[in-house]
Design a protein around this nucleic acid. Structure first.
Lengths: 215, 215
DNA sequence: TTGAAATTCAAACGCTCGTTTGAAGCGAAA
DNA sequence: TTTCGCTTCAAACGAGCGTTTGAATTTCAA
């Protein structure tokens, strides 16, 4: 009887718990971010014991890393966000598609939206676990904003300008996704449904493309 | 001997401690935000006892409120950020001035910059103490972005569009100020000095005015 | 100088957090 | 059926947080 056999034998119950924890962690981290999401809430939602996180993943960090791995894997397989899709379109359409995809979490609650929410949290103040992760395996979606921006900037644009522009663009949808809950309350009262999402995409695309001065 | 007399009599040492705490709290909150700034660090910098915060201000909230009061008072007296100054300029100049003033904390460490940093923190995830404060006495500087934006939008623009645009503009400089420390490290490596600040102002002003599509 | 009020201080309280512990439960091989 | 290793569990640990406590100290009018 090898370790492999043992692992296979025990894998059913183990995998059940692991999967439940990852699923619960995904929703909790999407809602509250890494620092704000507590192990107690995650294990509660997964109907597992608190110690299970440490037993199966070595700690909160390890569980988060699993979520990030699943996120990058899913997002890389999602055709909506693949770089080739962007390159096949005109710069204007690419920009609009980019904004629209990253704003979708405002009205959707599916898995991809939760992953995008997690990235939106990390765009504010990245956790150390996240930094360690993107150094090890940088998610492809982080190149997307730069890719879109480069379609507009001249070839000879300095790297600093590209960085400014990339950060500038990437954080426009991130802000709305991350703070949707707060913006829904006073004094903003922005409730997002399909139609207001479209208007937001229109507005951001217009500003990003032509600026405030050219409506 | 009235309470007033007692207050006056005891005011020297009291005011010294109070002022030291407020000064220390300003720098700590500017550095780490409200949640991230601890009472222990504040009292350490002020060379005061931990209990002094509760004794003089009733708690961390109360101390923060004093900082916010000082911030709004100072910022309202600062001619750089007054609404009249903006109205006296062309829309383009007003926008540029707005961006420049709110990006100044990147290179300056003076009192006004610390206050702007605190507001930048609050723009991400406002503390309850902050929400309670702005309801009681809304700082004037929060109307500035809307004022600038309205110079560009047509009179009949829907309120939702104005809100979108205001949030869009207001968060552009806030992001850089808040995350300056992180952006200085890899993979961005954006160190800000006078010249790079000017380039950032140029870039953001250009994008905000004319968008990516019209360099 | 005296006494009462104001202020400071070290220590501890109560809470939440991530993590650890050691016993109990469980399933499959012997 | 017994045994052994993997998994679960309730409980506690230790660290950090804001806050409270009660005694010591300072201050100053009387």
């Amino acid at each position: 009887m090898s370790n492999l056999d043992q692992a296979r034998v025990a894998s059913r119950s183990t995998e059940t718990t692991r999967a439940a924890l990852i699923k619960a962690a995904t929703s909790v981290f999407a809602e509250y971010g890494y620092d704000g999401g507590s192990v107690r809430l995650i294990t509660q939602r997964a109907m597992a014991n608190q110690a299970a996180v440490n037993y199966h993943f070595g700690g909160k960090d390890g569980l988060y890393r699993e979520v990030l791995i699943a996120a990058t894997k899913t997002l890389e397989q999602s055709s909506f966000l693949c770089p080739e899709e962007l390159d096949a379109r005109s710069p204007e359409e690419a920009l609009r598609l980019y904004l629209r995809q990253f704003l979708l979490p405002l009205v959707k609650r599916d898995r991809v939206s939760m992953y995008l929410r997690i990235f939106a949290w990390e765009s504010v103040r990245p956790s150390e676990a996240f930094n360690a992760f993107i150094v090890a395996s940088p998610p492809r979606i982080f190149q997307l904003a730069e890719r879109v921006v480069k379609r507009f900037l001249p070839e000879e644009a300095p790297a600093e300008t590209v960085t400014f522009a990339t950060l500038w663009l990437a954080h426009q949808p991130m802000f709305f996704v991350r703070d949707a809950e707060r913006l829904a309350r006073a004094p903003f009262a922005l409730k997002f449904d399909e139609s207001s999402l479209e208007r937001l995409v229109d507005t951001l695309a217009s500003f990003s493309l032509r600026g405030l001065g050219n409506p």
